[in-house]
């Protein structure tokens, strides 16, 4: 079926299977920042924002996104670049596969939280897993980034 999606402020006409998930639709549409890390909505590597809400695109039906604002890392180049500067300054990205999802989670967190205590930050990001870094580097980077913002 054909649907119209708004991806990173651009209207895109796309051909999808009826029960397709956004992760697949986005990747087919050339949005390669969105990664598949699991089959069970567990890893957070496909995190994107839909209408300002952080969601796992692997389990979000594409037709549900019609009429909504879909945002991926490609849609926030400046903010993503700045977050990337802080993460890479710590070397905390290592393999980088989970990083775009983490950037989207940080983007949403900034929108959603008022109190950026370490406990709150960790709780908010608990669904974004990383196997390389041991998380400590990410946390150092995020604290520094939030200080600047």
């Amino acid at each position: 079926m054909e649907i119209m999606l708004t991806i990173n402020n651009q209207k895109r006409r796309l051909l999808i299977e009826p029960d397709e998930y956004l992760l697949d639709t986005l990747r087919k549409a050339g949005i390669k920042s969105v990664k598949r890390g699991c089959d069970t909505t567990s890893c957070g590597m496909c995190s994107i924002s839909v209408d300002n809400k952080l969601v796992n695109s692997c389990s979000y039906y594409s037709i549900r996104a019609v009429g909504k604002e879909i945002l991926t890392v490609e849609g926030i180049p400046e903010e993503a670049g700045l977050i990337a500067d802080f993460i890479t300054a710590e070397g905390a990205e290592q393999c980088g596969f989970c990083s775009p999802g983490l950037v989207m989670a940080i983007h949403s967190m900034k929108h959603d939280l008022d109190d950026f205590s370490m406990e709150n930050i960790k709780h908010y990001l608990a669904g974004n897993s990383c196997r390389c870094s041991g998380y400590e580097g990410q946390h150092r980077a995020i604290l520094k980034y939030l200080e600047v913002k």
Binding site: V34, V73, E74, A80, A84, I87, E93, G96, P100
Partner: peptide, 12 residues
Amino acid sequence: PKIDGKGLVTGK
């Protein structure tokens, strides 16, 4: 920083 780091984090 890792020379490929920024490209990876920004989803290239």
